[in-house]
Every structure is written in structure tokens, then in C-alpha cells.
């Protein structure tokens, strides 16, 4: 399949229409929106408790100061906003599309099927508290740590966030694809979802083996740590290369797996 500029433009445009439709849906069900907002705010608070605790303790933990910890927690919170906003709803729905056969309908549309199942819904309730709190934390810590607010630093940080976003998508979408073979892909996804909790703390509190596993094999730790590691200047050569390679590799893996799965697809009967 050749990728042309017009095709990319069309898909970007489609994304905004999907987002608009999701927003219209929220206007229809305001209670759902507020419900989601309240819920996510409480979850945010429970994550902030870790940070609060570290500040109370006031010591460096494995060489990470409380202010640096705030960078990590802030980035983690921003990544949660991105994940819940763009991906979560779609991933939860995916197995249902196969079961109900709606995937059949999507398949006949002149639009990338993977794109359609990945971005059909945008969540507006969950990311709001996370985005506000996350950005506040990062800005606050940025100041307190006297990091030069240069364009280069900012661009680098945003670049690292983008790289993490791609990795998040790949790591969490991959187990979803298993739904093509087994209905019970739920538990695998659940466990991976819980793995995400490992990001509550910077990877430096974990032993080396777990850190390596989480960075290079199942890159869940990659997601929140890389942008923060870049900001607190702990990026070494290997990690510096990996930050570029990981998103490309993981996205390729997901795409390949998707192609194999879709070829073997035997649509739900009925």
C-alpha cells in the first residue's frame, strides 16, 4: 500500500471529524461527562499522594530529588491524559467490534481499518484533570530545578512525549489484536493495564533487571520515564538512540501483527 500525502491528509481530517462526533456525543450525555471527570480527578489525587509522600520525606531516593520526582509524576500524568483521551475508549471497544461484526462494515470503507478502530472515539472527560495537573507539575518542577527554558529543551521534551505516545499505542494495542484469535484477550490486556501502575514511580527505584525489562522488552517503563529522563539530563547514548528507535520498532511490530491478523480474520457468523 503506497502512502501518499493526500491519503495522510484525509486521515488527519477524518480524525478531527471523529473527535467532533465524540464531542457531540458528550453534549448529548452531559452526566456521563461529569461522571468521568469526577472519577478521574480522584484517581489523579491518589497518584499525587505518592508525590506528596516524597516531598514529606524530603530525601533523594536512589539519587532522585523530590523536585525531579515531580517531573516524573507530571510526565506520567500527561501520558495518562494522552492515553485516556486518544486510545483507551477505542481499545476497550475493539474486541466488541469483532464480536458484533461491526468490524465487517468498517472493513469495506475506503479508509485504513487500523486507523478507524484506533481513533474512532476521543475521550474528553478523562484527559482534562490530568492534562491540567500534569502540565502544572512539569512547569513547576522545571522552574524549581532551574532547567533552561530554551526552545531546544522544550522541543526535545515534546519530541520525547511524542515518541512515548507511539510506544504507548503500540504496547497497548498489540495485546488487543489477540482478540482475533481468542475472545478472552481481556485478561492479558488487564495485566498490561496494571503494569502501567509501575510508572507511578520513576524507574530508578526498580532493580536493574526490571528496569531493562521495562525499557527494552515490554516497554511500559519507557512511556513515562524517557521524557523525564531527558529533562533531568540522565539520557546516555544508548537511551538517546533508543528514544528514536523504540517507537519505529514497536509501531512496525504492531503493523505487521495487524496485517497477519486481518488476513486470517474470519468474521463473526450471523
Amino acid at each position: 500500500m503506497s502512502i501518499s500525502v493526500t491519503e495522510i491528509r484525509k486521515h488527519v481530517r477524518m480524525f478531527f471529524i471523529f473527535a467532533k462526533n465524540s464531542l457531540l456525543g458528550y453534549m448529548e450525555y452531559k452526566a456521563n461527562f461529569y461522571s468521568g471527570l469526577i472519577m478521574e480527578t480522584v484517581f489523579l489525587l491518589s497518584k499525587l499522594i505518592y508525590l506528596f509522600f516524597v516531598f514529606r520525606l524530603g530525601i533523594e531516593i536512589n539519587g532522585i530529588s523530590p523536585d525531579q520526582m515531580m517531573i516524573f509524576t507530571g510526565t506520567y500524568t500527561i501520558m495518562i491524559a494522552i492515553y485516556t483521551g486518544l486510545f483507551m475508549d477505542n481499545f476497550y471497544r475493539f474486541a466488541g467490534h469483532i464480536r458484533n461484526g461491526t468490524l465487517d462494515l468498517y472493513m469495506t470503507k475506503p479508509l485504513s481499518l487500523q486507523f478507524m478502530v484506533s481513533f474512532r472515539k476521543v475521550n474528553f472527560a478523562f484527559p482534562i484533570p490530568n492534562l491540567i495537573a500534569g502540565i502544572t507539575m512539569v512547569v513547576l518542577a522545571w522552574r524549581r530545578l532551574d532547567i533552561d527554558p530554551s526552545f531546544l529543551h522544550l522541543a526535545g521534551y515534546i519530541g520525547a512525549i511524542l515518541s512515548s505516545t507511539v510506544v504507548t499505542y503500540s504496547v497497548l494495542f498489540l495485546p488487543q489484536i489477540l482478540a482475533f484469535w481468542t475472545v478472552k484477550s481481556g485478561s492479558i490486556f488487564d495485566i498490561l493495564d496494571k503494569c502501567w501502575d509501575l510508572n507511578n514511580m520513576p524507574m530508578y527505584i526498580y532493580p536493574k533487571w526490571l528496569r531493562r525489562l521495562g525499557l527494552y522488552v515490554v516497554p511500559v517503563l519507557f512511556i513515562t520515564n524517557m521524557p523525564s529522563v531527558y529533562l533531568i539530563e540522565r539520557l546516555n547514548v544508548v537511551l538517546g538512540i533508543w528514544i528514536f528507535v523504540a517507537p519505529v520498532l514497536s509501531l512496525l511490530a504492531v503493523r505487521l501483527f495487524w496485517k497477519v491478523a486481518i488476513k486470517r480474520y474470519e468474521s463473526a457468523s450471523s
Binding site: K10, R13, M14, I17, F18, N21, L24, G25, E28, Y29, N100, G101, T102, D104, L105, K109, P110, L111, S270
Partner: peptide
């Protein structure tokens, strides 16, 4: 397909039609 819908359940039908306008 009679039993599967491509329309967005919570939205007016013309939003779904507009979506198809863009898809096609």
C-alpha cells in the same frame, strides 16, 4: 447488513452521513 449499523447511535443521522461524505 440489516443487523449491523454504521450510524453513530447518539448523534443525528446527518453527522454519520457527513462522515461518509468524507470517507468516500
Amino acid at each position: 447488513m440489516g443487523q449491523k449499523s454504521q450510524l453513530w447511535w447518539d448523534l443525528p443521522a446527518n453527522e454519520s452521513l457527513y462522515l461518509n461524505k468524507c470517507i468516500y
